[in-house]
Design a protein around this nucleic acid. Structure first.
Length: 424
RNA sequence: CGGGGUAUAGCGCAGUCUGGUAGCGCACUCGCUUUGGGAGCGAGUGGUCGUAAGUUCGAAUCUUACUACCCCGACCA
């Protein structure tokens, strides 16, 4: 009735395809299933987490004053020719043709589309600055997809593009996004580091990456022992030098020594300058009637990658330990003898409704299964709070509360409601 | 693309060396008994052994080609 089997299609053993912990746990917890290399279906449980991350990102972006748009995934060759990226991008750009043999690509990023929109829409400095964003599926035909949704070919990304009249305006937008990204990662509850980075193929001047710290991270970063400064080691290494040799050396910013850590890049912010606006003729008129190319910035967050990175940073031998803000459910009600005992069934159903009404995201595990399987699954999937109704409830009305981090307490149903009421 | 590996039921595996027509655990279905840490008993369902060709009386097993997937490198949110 309340419980759909598709919510918990858990696996006792991880499929052979998975190597790292987050990938294994996402498969075991029934969050994702592979369709092709680097291409995944999100199951209900995984999608709930993905949507929670997405909502936090959206809400912080909106607070920053950015405007949400939705651009197409399929993009015509013509605009990519204008920036010469149709040539430059290589095989990572998945090219397709329509029935008229016109060339298109699946969007790996959207600088061309957004710049096209802005040049046709914004004509005066008075309408600037502006920051636009979207949360949308990207496709990059990665040389080697791996680690499940950590490095997939199709993935969900929030990409934002700012436009302003001068460098000062760009700086402001950049700082605004930098602060917004901090808020997003803090709200989600991840340990992260802002890292000086190479701006790569997208081009432009300055750029910084946001790394979630985790042992299995693909990037290696050098952190100053005595300051907030961090830099991607790919910028530090000279030819033939290995990463280990950096450890303990003087930090690049002069504050203490270098500590080496592994990180997962979940965000990247760039000052693009006028590269795209010059190529595509995105100009506005200034106060004194001069025509100038727009100063652009672009800011990306890997929404689906954050889900994997969160698991990579927060897990134990039992399974996933979600930060509360993005857990698929807040509470799991575990009845023992649900289908056999009317008293348990009624109490569970009632509690489920009431918590739902109070605004909690609640699951009722009404499967015909023993306590062992239910609690194991709950721990695997990482639901922060479990409410157990069993023999003790029948005896004297007591209910057990058990958190994912192992704290147990006993209560009765009225006190429990008061407690939950208090927290909401 | 270079190097390494895997492919047998939904998942994990054995069987391959030494050819004889496919098996185990979990899951699933039915029945009864169970229900506070992945329940027990009984009865079942499910596989053209990745694909194609070859060798052979006979191929999961030997040969060749191909494909998919995974891992290590360059790319990236």
């Amino acid at each position: 009735m309340l419980f759909s089997k598709l919510v918990l299609p858990t696996l006792k053993e991880a499929p052979q395809e998975a190597e790292i912990i987050s990938h294994k746990l996402m498969l075991r917890a029934g969050m994702i299933r592979k369709v092709a290399s680097g291409v995944y279906t999100w199951l209900p449980l995984g999608l709930k987490v993905l949507r929670k991350v997405e909502e936090i990102v959206r809400s912080e972006m909106n607070k920053s004053g950015a405007q949400e748009v939705l651009m197409p995934m399929v993009q015509p060759k013509e605009i990519w020719d204008e920036t010469h990226r149709w040539e430059k991008m290589g095989k990572e750009l998945l090219r397709i043709q329509d029935r008229h043999e016109r060339d298109f690509c699946l969007g790996p990023t959207h600088e061309e589309v957004i710049t096209d929109l802005i040049r046709n829409t914004i004509k005066s400095y008075k309408e600037l600055p502006i920051n636009t964003y979207q949360i949308q599926t990207k496709f990059r035909d990665e040389i080697r997809p791996r680690y499940g949704v950590m490095r997939s070919r199709e993935f969900l990304m929030k990409d934002a593009y700012s436009f302003g009249v001068d460098e000062e305006s760009l700086d402001k937008s950049y700082i605004e996004m930098r602060n917004t990204y901090k808020k997003i990662l803090e709200k989600i509850g991840l340990e992260y580091k802002i890292v000086k980075a190479d701006s790569g193929a997208i081009g432009g001047d300055a750029s910084e990456e946001f790394h979630v710290l985790a042992e299995n991270g693909e990037d290696t970063i050098a952190i100053s022992s005595d300051s907030e400064f961090a830099i991607n080691t790919e910028l530090l290494l000279k030819d033939g030098e290995d990463i280990a040799s950096l450890e303990g050396k003087k930090a690049p910013d002069g504050n203490g020594t270098i500590q080496i850590k592994k990180g997962i890049e979940v965000g990247h912010i760039f000052k693009l300058g006028t590269v795209y606006s010059e190529n595509m003729g995105a100009t506005v008129q200034t106060k004194d009637g001069k025509s100038i190319s727009l100063q652009m910035g672009c800011y990306g967050i890997g929404v689906s990658r954050i889900v994997a990175a969160s698991i990579e940073q927060n897990n134990d031998d039992k399974g996933i330990v979600w930060p509360a803000a993005i857990a698929p459910f807040d509470v799991n009600i575990i009845p023992i003898g649900y289908e056999k005992n009317k008293e348990i069934e009624d109490a569970s159903n009632k509690l489920y409704q009431e918590l739902l009404n109070q605004g909690y995201d609640v699951l009722l595990d009404d499967r015909k299964a023993g306590f062992g399987s239910k609690i194991k699954d709950s721990e695997l999937v990482g639901i922060p709070i479990n409410i157990i109704l069993g023999n003790k409830f029948l005896d004297d009305g007591s209910i057990e509360l058990r958190t994912r981090d192992g704290q147990e307490s006993v209560s009765n149903i009225e006190d429990l409601k008061l407690l939950f009421n208090h927290f909401k």
